[in-house]
Amino acid sequence: MYEKIQETASWLKERMTTKPETAIILGTGLGQLATEITDSYEFSYSDIPNFPVSTVEGHSGKLIFGKLGGKDIMAMQGRFHYYEGYSMKDVTFPIRVMYELGIKTLFVSNASGGMNPEFKIGDLMIITDHINFFPEHPLRGKNFPTGPRFPDMHETYDHALIKEADQIAEENGIRVMHGVYVGVQGPTFETPAEYKMYHRLGGDAVGMSTVPEVIVAHHCGIRTFGISIITDLGLEDNPVEVSHEEVQVAANNAQPLMTEIMREMIRRA
């Protein structure tokens, strides 16, 4: 696997005309942030050696390079999910490649179901911590040389980046919430009993991504900032039915606010 990662990174380096130190992963329905990237050039996942290919609606499947907030960045327009049948090594393969390309900071976004009664649909939740409910750990197996066998997880989501995001949100009058993200396998949305359990265990939002990528980024020493768009609610007293299409619509509506925060954070870096 390590040889494949290096092969993929070498293929990209030969074709890159920029040197980004920041990467963004765009979750379900959040791909339009890519239109904000200027001076861009891109590669389809299907053209990149060893790269998985996204199969989910709302995930375009492109690796985009260019500028955002005046800085060189790279963005994944579409991610890979464990529920698609990929192994955790496949799901986190792009993060390993990012490390080889010199990425120092990773922004992750997702659409998630809110369990905190203070949340509203369309809210932005800055992720302060996570609970890992995936059945396979992304660091299972032989340890990669990018980090220790037993990485500490006390500050998985960078406190300084969270503080900066809060400041930018306040300056621009954007409502942001803080919370713990629960990462689950999917692909089913949660039952009312599951929503209740995850909330009582300490979760504020639940989704089917992000946690594996963040763990591997942390193992590589990459600073991480995560943000969830609350696209549906699974409150204990008022569970509601949800569809993938509704999630995409809610995510699209909240995109401009998330983009504004991320763009300014990158500009100030």
Rank of each mutant, 00 (worst) to 15 (best):
M1G: 04
Y2E: 15
Y2W: 09
I5T: 11
Q6D: 13
L12Q: 00
L12C: 14
K13A: 06
E14G: 14
M16I: 01
M16D: 09
E21C: 10
I24F: 05
G31P: 08
G31V: 08
T35K: 09
T38V: 08
D47T: 08
P49F: 04
F51Y: 09
F51Q: 13
S54D: 01
S54N: 07
L68W: 02
G69W: 14
M74E: 12
M74D: 14
R79K: 06
E84T: 07
G85W: 00
Y99I: 14
T105W: 04
L106T: 04
L106Q: 01
A111C: 03
G113V: 00
T128A: 03
D129G: 07
I131R: 09
I131D: 03
E136I: 13
P138Q: 08
P138K: 05
L139G: 04
G141E: 08
F150K: 11
P151Q: 04
M153R: 14
Y157I: 00
D166T: 03
E171D: 09
R175S: 12
G186Q: 06
G186T: 09
G203Y: 05
V216S: 06
H218C: 13
C220P: 05
G221D: 02
R223T: 05
I230W: 11
D232Q: 13
Q248G: 05
A251Q: 06
L257G: 04
M258N: 15
M265Y: 01
M265I: 12
R267S: 13
R267N: 14
